[in-house]
Protein backbone atom coordinates (compact mmCIF):
# COMPACT_ATOMS: atom_id res chain seq x y z
CA UNK A 1 0.00 0.00 0.00
CA UNK A 2 2.67 2.44 1.05
CA UNK A 3 4.62 1.41 -1.98
CA UNK A 4 1.75 2.37 -4.22
CA UNK A 5 1.52 5.85 -2.69
CA UNK A 6 5.19 6.61 -3.19
CA UNK A 7 4.85 5.22 -6.67
CA UNK A 8 2.00 7.59 -7.48
CA UNK A 9 3.84 10.51 -5.94
CA UNK A 10 6.87 9.58 -7.99
CA UNK A 11 4.85 9.51 -11.19
CA UNK A 12 3.29 12.82 -10.27
CA UNK A 13 6.69 14.34 -9.72
CA UNK A 14 7.95 12.93 -13.01
CA UNK A 15 5.10 14.44 -14.96
CA UNK A 16 5.35 17.71 -13.11
CA UNK A 17 9.00 18.12 -14.04
CA UNK A 18 8.70 16.87 -17.58
CA UNK A 19 5.47 18.73 -18.24
CA UNK A 20 6.80 21.89 -16.67
CA UNK A 21 9.89 21.84 -18.74
CA UNK A 22 7.96 21.03 -21.89
CA UNK A 23 5.80 24.05 -21.24
CA UNK A 24 8.89 26.19 -20.82
CA UNK A 25 10.30 24.86 -24.07
CA UNK A 26 7.11 25.56 -25.97
CA UNK A 27 5.94 28.82 -24.45
CA UNK A 28 8.16 31.22 -26.41
CA UNK A 29 7.32 29.53 -29.68
CA UNK A 30 3.60 29.48 -28.96
CA UNK A 31 3.72 33.11 -27.89
CA UNK A 32 5.16 34.12 -31.23
CA UNK A 33 2.71 32.05 -33.22
CA UNK A 34 -0.31 33.28 -31.26
CA UNK A 35 0.68 36.90 -31.63
CA UNK A 36 1.51 36.57 -35.30
CA UNK A 37 -2.20 36.29 -36.08
CA UNK A 38 -3.21 39.34 -34.10
CA UNK A 39 -3.54 42.99 -35.01
CA UNK A 40 -0.94 45.46 -33.84
CA UNK A 41 -3.12 46.67 -30.97
CA UNK A 42 -3.79 43.09 -29.96
CA UNK A 43 -0.09 42.32 -29.88
CA UNK A 44 0.73 45.25 -27.66
CA UNK A 45 -2.28 45.46 -25.40
CA UNK A 46 -2.77 41.79 -24.56
CA UNK A 47 0.19 39.73 -25.69
CA UNK A 48 -0.77 36.75 -23.56
CA UNK A 49 -4.30 36.21 -24.75
CA UNK A 50 -5.46 34.15 -27.69
CA UNK A 51 -6.64 36.09 -30.72
CA UNK A 52 -10.26 37.16 -30.48
CA UNK A 53 -12.60 38.11 -33.29
CA UNK A 54 -11.55 41.68 -32.66
CA UNK A 55 -7.80 41.18 -32.68
CA UNK A 56 -7.58 38.47 -35.35
CA UNK A 57 -5.48 39.69 -38.25
CA UNK A 58 -3.26 38.12 -40.87
CA UNK A 59 -1.74 41.38 -42.04
CA UNK A 60 1.74 40.27 -41.04
CA UNK A 61 1.60 37.11 -43.13
CA UNK A 62 0.22 38.99 -46.10
CA UNK A 63 3.13 41.38 -45.91
CA UNK A 64 5.77 38.71 -45.53
CA UNK A 65 4.47 36.49 -48.29
CA UNK A 66 4.10 39.45 -50.62
CA UNK A 67 7.58 40.76 -49.92
CA UNK A 68 9.75 37.70 -49.82
CA UNK A 69 9.81 34.29 -51.52
CA UNK A 70 9.61 32.26 -48.35
CA UNK A 71 8.70 28.97 -49.95
CA UNK A 72 11.71 29.27 -52.19
CA UNK A 73 14.03 30.01 -49.26
CA UNK A 74 12.63 26.99 -47.54
CA UNK A 75 13.39 24.80 -50.54
CA UNK A 76 16.97 26.04 -50.55
CA UNK A 77 17.45 25.24 -46.89
CA UNK A 78 15.97 21.82 -47.35
CA UNK A 79 18.17 21.00 -50.34
CA UNK A 80 21.35 22.18 -48.66
CA UNK A 81 20.64 20.39 -45.40
CA UNK A 82 19.57 17.07 -46.87
CA UNK A 83 22.32 16.80 -49.47
CA UNK A 84 24.97 17.79 -46.94
CA UNK A 85 23.60 15.32 -44.46
CA UNK A 86 23.66 12.38 -46.86
CA UNK A 87 27.20 13.21 -47.98
CA UNK A 88 28.45 13.63 -44.42
CA UNK A 89 26.96 10.32 -43.37
CA UNK A 90 28.09 8.26 -46.32
CA UNK A 91 31.54 9.79 -46.75
CA UNK A 92 32.03 10.00 -42.99
CA UNK A 93 31.12 6.36 -42.44
CA UNK A 94 33.42 5.30 -45.28
CA UNK A 95 36.33 7.24 -43.83
CA UNK A 96 35.60 6.11 -40.29
CA UNK A 97 35.57 2.53 -41.47
CA UNK A 98 38.85 2.91 -43.33
CA UNK A 99 40.52 4.61 -40.37
CA UNK A 100 39.40 2.16 -37.72
CA UNK A 101 39.53 -1.06 -39.73
CA UNK A 102 42.71 -0.87 -41.75
CA UNK A 103 45.99 -0.20 -40.04
CA UNK A 104 48.34 1.38 -42.53
CA UNK A 105 51.29 3.71 -42.20
CA UNK A 106 50.05 7.13 -41.16
CA UNK A 107 46.54 5.98 -40.29
CA UNK A 108 46.79 7.30 -36.73
CA UNK A 109 48.12 10.60 -38.01
CA UNK A 110 45.34 10.81 -40.54
CA UNK A 111 42.76 10.16 -37.84
CA UNK A 112 44.17 12.99 -35.75
CA UNK A 113 44.24 15.25 -38.79
CA UNK A 114 40.58 14.59 -39.47
CA UNK A 115 39.70 15.12 -35.80
CA UNK A 116 41.12 18.63 -35.71
CA UNK A 117 38.06 19.93 -37.46
CA UNK A 118 35.95 19.21 -34.38
CA UNK A 119 37.87 21.74 -32.39
CA UNK A 120 38.28 24.59 -34.82
CA UNK A 121 35.28 26.50 -36.03
CA UNK A 122 35.47 26.43 -39.80
CA UNK A 123 34.35 30.05 -39.72
CA UNK A 124 37.93 30.99 -38.87
CA UNK A 125 38.94 30.07 -42.40
CA UNK A 126 36.22 32.10 -44.10
CA UNK A 127 38.38 34.29 -46.27
CA UNK A 128 40.32 31.41 -47.79
CA UNK A 129 37.13 29.44 -48.26
CA UNK A 130 35.58 32.31 -50.14
CA UNK A 131 38.65 32.64 -52.37
CA UNK A 132 38.46 28.96 -53.16
CA UNK A 133 34.76 29.15 -53.90
CA UNK A 134 35.37 32.09 -56.22
CA UNK A 135 38.12 30.20 -58.08
CA UNK A 136 35.78 27.29 -58.54
CA UNK A 137 33.09 29.72 -59.73
CA UNK A 138 30.71 28.45 -57.12
CA UNK A 139 29.65 31.72 -55.50
CA UNK A 140 25.91 32.01 -55.06
CA UNK A 141 25.41 28.31 -55.57
CA UNK A 142 24.01 25.85 -53.09
CA UNK A 143 26.92 23.58 -54.03
CA UNK A 144 29.36 25.91 -52.30
CA UNK A 145 27.32 25.76 -49.09
CA UNK A 146 27.05 21.99 -49.30
CA UNK A 147 30.80 21.55 -49.70
CA UNK A 148 31.55 23.75 -46.72
CA UNK A 149 28.97 22.04 -44.55
CA UNK A 150 30.27 18.62 -45.51
CA UNK A 151 33.80 19.69 -44.59
CA UNK A 152 32.43 21.08 -41.33
CA UNK A 153 30.40 18.01 -40.43
CA UNK A 154 32.83 15.26 -41.39
CA UNK A 155 35.20 15.33 -38.40
CA UNK A 156 32.50 14.78 -35.78
CA UNK A 157 30.81 12.20 -37.96
CA UNK A 158 34.05 10.28 -38.39
CA UNK A 159 34.73 10.35 -34.67
CA UNK A 160 31.32 9.16 -33.53
CA UNK A 161 30.91 6.61 -36.31
CA UNK A 162 34.46 5.38 -35.71
CA UNK A 163 33.67 4.61 -32.08
CA UNK A 164 30.66 2.59 -33.12
CA UNK A 165 32.49 0.75 -35.88
CA UNK A 166 35.08 -0.35 -33.38
CA UNK A 167 32.36 -1.98 -31.34
CA UNK A 168 31.26 -4.16 -34.26
CA UNK A 169 32.30 -7.71 -33.30
CA UNK A 170 35.43 -8.85 -35.08
CA UNK A 171 33.93 -12.25 -35.82
CA UNK A 172 31.35 -10.77 -38.16
CA UNK A 173 33.94 -9.20 -40.43
CA UNK A 174 36.33 -12.12 -40.25
CA UNK A 175 33.60 -14.56 -41.12
CA UNK A 176 32.66 -12.49 -44.14
CA UNK A 177 36.26 -12.21 -45.25
CA UNK A 178 36.72 -15.95 -44.96
CA UNK A 179 33.75 -16.37 -47.24
CA UNK A 180 35.58 -14.17 -49.75
CA UNK A 181 33.26 -11.19 -49.49
CA UNK A 182 34.86 -7.98 -50.89
CA UNK A 183 35.76 -5.06 -48.68
CA UNK A 184 33.14 -2.78 -50.23
CA UNK A 185 30.43 -5.32 -49.75
CA UNK A 186 31.46 -5.82 -46.14
CA UNK A 187 31.16 -2.13 -45.54
CA UNK A 188 27.92 -1.43 -47.32
CA UNK A 189 26.08 -4.63 -46.46
CA UNK A 190 27.36 -5.51 -43.01
CA UNK A 191 28.84 -2.48 -41.31
CA UNK A 192 26.56 0.29 -42.52
CA UNK A 193 23.34 -1.40 -41.36
CA UNK A 194 24.95 -2.18 -38.01
CA UNK A 195 25.89 1.41 -37.22
CA UNK A 196 22.49 2.85 -38.08
CA UNK A 197 21.83 4.14 -34.56
CA UNK A 198 25.07 6.10 -34.61
CA UNK A 199 24.12 7.46 -37.99
CA UNK A 200 21.00 8.96 -36.47
CA UNK A 201 23.00 10.61 -33.68
CA UNK A 202 25.37 12.13 -36.18
CA UNK A 203 22.45 13.24 -38.31
CA UNK A 204 20.94 15.24 -35.48
CA UNK A 205 24.25 16.80 -34.56
CA UNK A 206 25.15 17.87 -38.05
CA UNK A 207 21.74 18.79 -39.35
CA UNK A 208 20.90 21.43 -36.77
CA UNK A 209 23.92 23.69 -37.31
CA UNK A 210 23.54 23.44 -41.06
CA UNK A 211 19.88 24.34 -41.08
CA UNK A 212 20.47 27.25 -38.74
CA UNK A 213 23.69 28.65 -40.14
CA UNK A 214 23.63 32.32 -40.91
CA UNK A 215 27.27 32.86 -41.65
CA UNK A 216 28.10 30.96 -44.80
CA UNK A 217 24.89 31.78 -46.64
CA UNK A 218 25.68 35.41 -45.89
CA UNK A 219 29.22 35.16 -47.26
CA UNK A 220 29.02 32.51 -49.97
CA UNK A 221 25.48 32.64 -51.26
CA UNK A 222 23.66 35.84 -50.33
CA UNK A 223 21.89 36.10 -53.70
CA UNK A 224 18.12 36.00 -53.58
CA UNK A 225 18.07 32.78 -55.61
CA UNK A 226 20.15 30.89 -53.07
CA UNK A 227 19.07 32.45 -49.78
CA UNK A 228 18.28 30.04 -47.01
CA UNK A 229 15.43 30.48 -44.55
CA UNK A 230 17.71 31.64 -41.76
CA UNK A 231 19.31 34.32 -43.89
CA UNK A 232 15.99 35.29 -45.41
CA UNK A 233 14.38 35.75 -42.01
CA UNK A 234 17.36 37.63 -40.67
CA UNK A 235 17.30 40.06 -43.60
CA UNK A 236 13.57 40.39 -43.41
CA UNK A 237 13.64 41.21 -39.72
CA UNK A 238 16.40 43.72 -40.36
CA UNK A 239 14.15 45.38 -42.85
CA UNK A 240 10.88 45.33 -40.93
CA UNK A 241 12.21 45.38 -37.41
CA UNK A 242 9.65 47.88 -36.17
CA UNK A 243 6.72 46.21 -37.85
CA UNK A 244 5.84 43.63 -35.25
CA UNK A 245 3.10 42.03 -37.32
CA UNK A 246 5.57 41.29 -40.07
CA UNK A 247 8.34 40.26 -37.70
CA UNK A 248 6.17 37.82 -35.78
CA UNK A 249 4.73 36.44 -39.00
CA UNK A 250 8.16 35.88 -40.49
CA UNK A 251 9.34 34.22 -37.29
CA UNK A 252 6.30 31.96 -37.40
CA UNK A 253 6.88 31.14 -41.03
CA UNK A 254 10.46 30.20 -40.24
CA UNK A 255 9.37 28.02 -37.34
CA UNK A 256 6.27 26.34 -38.75
CA UNK A 257 7.86 24.27 -41.54
CA UNK A 258 10.41 22.99 -39.05
CA UNK A 259 7.57 22.06 -36.72
CA UNK A 260 5.70 20.24 -39.45
CA UNK A 261 8.79 18.38 -40.59
CA UNK A 262 9.62 17.55 -37.04
CA UNK A 263 6.18 16.13 -36.35
CA UNK A 264 6.68 13.71 -39.22
CA UNK A 265 10.31 12.92 -38.67
CA UNK A 266 10.63 13.04 -34.89
CA UNK A 267 9.59 9.46 -34.41
CA UNK A 268 12.25 8.24 -36.82
CA UNK A 269 14.74 10.66 -35.36
CA UNK A 270 14.28 9.66 -31.76
CA UNK A 271 13.93 6.01 -32.56
CA UNK A 272 17.15 6.33 -34.54
CA UNK A 273 19.04 7.85 -31.68
CA UNK A 274 17.93 5.19 -29.28
CA UNK A 275 17.50 2.30 -31.68
CA UNK A 276 20.75 0.63 -30.84
CA UNK A 277 19.73 0.46 -27.25
CA UNK A 278 16.19 -0.80 -27.54
CA UNK A 279 16.52 -4.50 -27.98
Amino acid sequence: MKHKVTRAAGTGFTHLVLGGYTLLALFPILLVIINSVKSKDGIFDSPLSLPTAETWSLVGFEKVLAKSPFIHFFGNSLTVTLVSLVLILVLGAMAAWALSEYKFRGSKLLAIYMAFGIMVPIRLGTVSILELVVKLELTNTLTALILVYVAQGLPLAIMILGEFIQQVPKELKEAARCDGVGEFKIFFQIILPLIRPAVATVAVFTMVPIWNDLWFPLILAPGEETQTVTLGVQQFIGQYVTDWNAVLASLSLAVLPVLVMYVFASRQLIRGITAGAVK
Partner: peptide
Protein backbone atom coordinates in the same frame (compact mmCIF):
# COMPACT_ATOMS: atom_id res chain seq x y z
CA UNK B 1 19.40 46.57 -55.36
CA UNK B 2 20.91 44.00 -53.00
CA UNK B 3 21.06 45.35 -49.47
CA UNK B 4 22.61 43.60 -46.49
CA UNK B 5 21.44 44.39 -42.95
CA UNK B 6 23.41 47.39 -41.61
CA UNK B 7 25.16 45.37 -38.91
CA UNK B 8 26.46 42.83 -41.43
CA UNK B 9 27.11 45.20 -44.28
CA UNK B 10 30.72 46.09 -43.61
CA UNK B 11 31.97 42.61 -42.84
CA UNK B 12 30.13 40.83 -45.59
CA UNK B 13 31.04 43.52 -48.12
CA UNK B 14 34.67 43.26 -47.08
CA UNK B 15 34.59 39.52 -47.60
CA UNK B 16 32.84 39.74 -50.94
CA UNK B 17 35.33 42.37 -52.11
CA UNK B 18 38.24 40.21 -51.02
CA UNK B 19 36.69 37.23 -52.77
CA UNK B 20 35.86 39.26 -55.85
CA UNK B 21 32.14 38.65 -55.67
Amino acid sequence: FAPTAPTEYDSSLQTRLTGGT
